[in-house]
């Protein structure tokens, strides 16, 4: 922790909002993006990102500097979002009167009838959309590692610190998360294969 950060934390502990805002300035976008990908919806994401930041502010007196401030903040964010998702799942199950969509088994998911043609899907924008939707369908644990690694670009060590599990677990969890993501994407749109084929062709293959 550098001296500036330390000072800002001290000021935040005493209730200085400006100091706290300076402290989180470079992190709040990431906090929002974690929440966005965890929940898959901008309204919830804003609410939860702010919940997490406010909570960091009110509990900053408890921050001991064992991890970096950002790790601590992201951990709060992940926790806030995971709690929210659990609650939401419960509500959804009750209100929908149908089995919840299992994260492990996505057989039931169907491609919409008015799906765009292969050419369109082959575009990167469509792939992004597919990936976005697929992340929503991952289990909370898989979402967490994938977001921290592939969106936040954290190292395995940082992820391990944030989630409080060891690096070996992160490695295997991330591998499974990505494999799961791939599986969902391919299930959701057979057309994705076209994209891959095209991609391969560029490389002179297939």
């Amino acid at each position: 922790m550098d001296a500036t950060e330390k000072k800002l934390i001290e000021l935040s502990v005493s209730g200085d909002i400006e100091a706290f805002e300076t402290l989180i300035q470079s992190h709040q976008k990431r906090v929002y993006n974690i929440a966005l990908r965890m929940t898959g919806n901008p309204e919830d994401a804003q609410e939860l990102a702010q919940d997490a930041i406010v909570r960091a502010f009110t509990s900053i007196g408890k921050f001991r500097g064992d991890s970096s401030f950002s790790t601590w903040l992201y951990r709060i964010t992940i926790n806030v979002c995971t709690d929210f998702l659990r609650k939401r799942r419960k509500t959804t199950v009750i209100s929908m009167e149908q089995g919840p969509v299992s994260n492990e088994n996505n057989q039931g998911i169907q491609i919409e009838e008015e799906a765009p043609g292969p050419d369109e899907l082959a575009e990167k924008k469509q792939l992004k959309e597919l990936v976005r939707e697929a992340i929503d369908l991952l289990s909370d644990e898989h979402k967490q590692v994938l977001i921290l690694r592939d969106i936040m670009d954290m190292s395995y060590k940082e992820i391990a610190n944030t989630l409080n599990v060891n690096e070996g677990t992160i490695k295997s969890r991330l591998n499974r998360a990505r494999a799961g993501l791939k599986k969902i994407i391919i299930q959701r749109a057979e057309l994705f294969k076209d994209y891959v084929v095209k991609y391969d062709r560029k490389g002179g293959n297939s």
Partner: peptide, 26 residues
């Protein structure tokens, strides 16, 4: 391909985020 698509998912903070956050902090 998939991972690089993930990397492009980062979005900007929504409008009004910082000001409403400020209110909540107050």
């Amino acid at each position: 391909t998939i991972v690089s698509a993930c990397g492009e998912l980062e979005e900007e903070l929504p409008e009004g985020f910082i000001s409403s956050l400020h209110e909540r902090l107050e």
